[in-house]
């Protein structure tokens, strides 16, 4: 959705580090040291502290985690579970219930197509189909080069401008497939 993945820019430089922690080399000492040195975990810890480590703050904390890390990787979920004193399955259940939380990394850019009723009536489905064909991915997927994710939204509330899309936070209305494809190309070129 439009508000997620906004910290792409901040996450990008740290990518090597992240993929290192992705490696399932289960040397816990090494890992915990890495965690300490990782300021993103510090940011997450601060959020949990601000919520007094209340279990009820799980969704707020996951929002923060998603903002900070770009997506909810397994280590992050474990960290949150530990911090909020919650069972792992409970954390996983909540993280997978809400569509805005992603357990997989998204693309550098995002293109969200609003699929609300007003947009639907004005041809959003055809627009989406054209974008899927153009990008060679299905809605909800990211191109193999990790450049762009194509997402669908329930309704972004700009029904007056149907059909609407959001590319990297910027809303554009009254779209044709050609216009959207051009905007995507421009975004990718940046």
């Amino acid at each position: 959705m439009s508000v997620q993945n906004q910290p792409t820019a901040t996450v990008a430089p740290e990518k090597p580090q992240k993929s290192a922690s992705d490696n399932k080399s289960k040397k816990s000492d090494n890992k915990s040291k890495k965690k300490e040195s990782d300021r993103r975990y510090k940011a997450l810890d601060m959020t949990m502290k601000r919520h007094h480590y209340e279990a009820d703050a799980l969704i707020e904390v996951l929002h923060k985690a998603q903002d900070t890390f770009g997506y909810l990787e397994e280590d992050v979920l474990r960290h949150v579970a530990k911090g909020l004193k919650l069972p792992l399955s409970r954390v996983y259940g909540v993280a997978t219930f809400y569509h805005l939380f992603s357990l997989k990394p998204g693309g550098e850019h995002t293109c969200v197509v609003c699929l609300g009723t007003a947009c639907h009536v004005k041809g959003a489905s055809e627009l989406l189909a054209d974008l899927e064909a153009e990008l060679g991915i299905k809605v909800g997927e990211t191109t193999s080069d990790g450049k762009i994710s194509l997402l669908g939204a329930r309704c972004i509330g700009t029904c007056g401008l149907a059909p609407a899309i959001v590319i990297d936070e910027v809303v554009s209305g009254k779209q044709t497939s050609e216009e959207t494809i051009k905007q995507i190309k421009d975004a990718l070129a940046q």
Partner: peptide, 16 residues
């Protein structure tokens, strides 16, 4: 716990 939503709901152990 239960994870995912709707028709994709399933019982999950731990962190899946």
């Amino acid at each position: 716990d239960v994870s995912q939503r709707g028709e994709f709901c399933h019982i999950t152990s731990g962190l899946d």
